[in-house]
Nucleic acid binder design. Structure first.
Length: 193
DNA sequence: AACAACCTCAACCGCATCAGA
DNA sequence: GTCTGATGCGGTTGAGGTTGT
């Protein structure tokens, strides 16, 4: 009996969220903010785990979420960013205001991956492969730059840790200026769309 | 109308990373 | 320095919807 009760206590809800659950979650987050996810379900009286609450908030309830069709411009940007960054969905989503990583990942898997594969078949040469070279070259150039700076400041070369996100400046994307994407892709003319 | 095949997307899972004690 | 809990990320799953036969 006791065992049954304790099992029941930890048996959390899974599956689709109800409108009532959404309302409770949004209410608590409004008051306490989107942090300490582990405590949120308890406070909200939800039979969910914190992780599930966080995901629901991030992908669905958060304000300024843009739902519905992905525009041609957005699609183009996703393609270009994916070419540049690979499956780094959160990074790509960060450059598309109002879109979530999950949404972009789903969109890629259901729409764009097919498109890209078809393109590959037609063009023969692997664009992804090409992009890897282009990206690698960019990274190498950047590393070289860091190395030069480090030798002048006396740092050890062996400890270079390079982060693409830190190095590339995405800040102008929010203003709708996608020119920078072309600039990077132009490193190798062959891999432009 | 009935069924199968396919597609979409919300949600889960496991692992990695970060931050604070 | 290391331990632990919280958070973030990408891959995967499965329910529900749509389309084709």
């Amino acid at each position: 009996m006791e065992q049954k009760l304790s099992l029941k206590r930890f048996d959390v809800n899974k599956g689709a969220w109800t409108a009532e659950e959404d309302r409770k979650l949004a209410e608590v987050i409004k008051v306490r903010g989107a942090k300490r996810w582990k405590t949120i379900p308890t406070i909200a009286g939800l039979n969910r785990c914190g992780k599930s609450c966080r995901l629901r908030w991030m992908n669905y309830l958060r304000p300024n979420i843009k739902r519905g069709n992905i525009s041609d411009q957005e699609e183009d940007l996703i393609l270009r960013l994916h070419k540049l960054l690979g499956n780094r969905w959160s990074l790509i989503a960060g450059r598309l205001p109002g879109r979530t990583d999950n949404e972009i990942k789903n969109y890629w898997n259901s729409h764009l991956s097919k498109k890209v594969n078809q393109k590959k078949k037609h063009s023969g040469a692997s664009a992804t492969q090409g992009c890897k070279f282009a990206q690698q070259r960019l990274v190498e150039n950047a590393k070289e730059q860091v190395r030069e700076e480090n030798t002048s400041t006396g740092f050890e070369e062996s400890n270079i840790s390079f982060d693409v996100d830190d190095f590339f400046d995405f800040s102008n994307v929010d203003t709708g200026n996608f020119e920078w994407v072309n600039r990077f892709l132009e490193v190798d003319e062959g891999f432009k769309f």
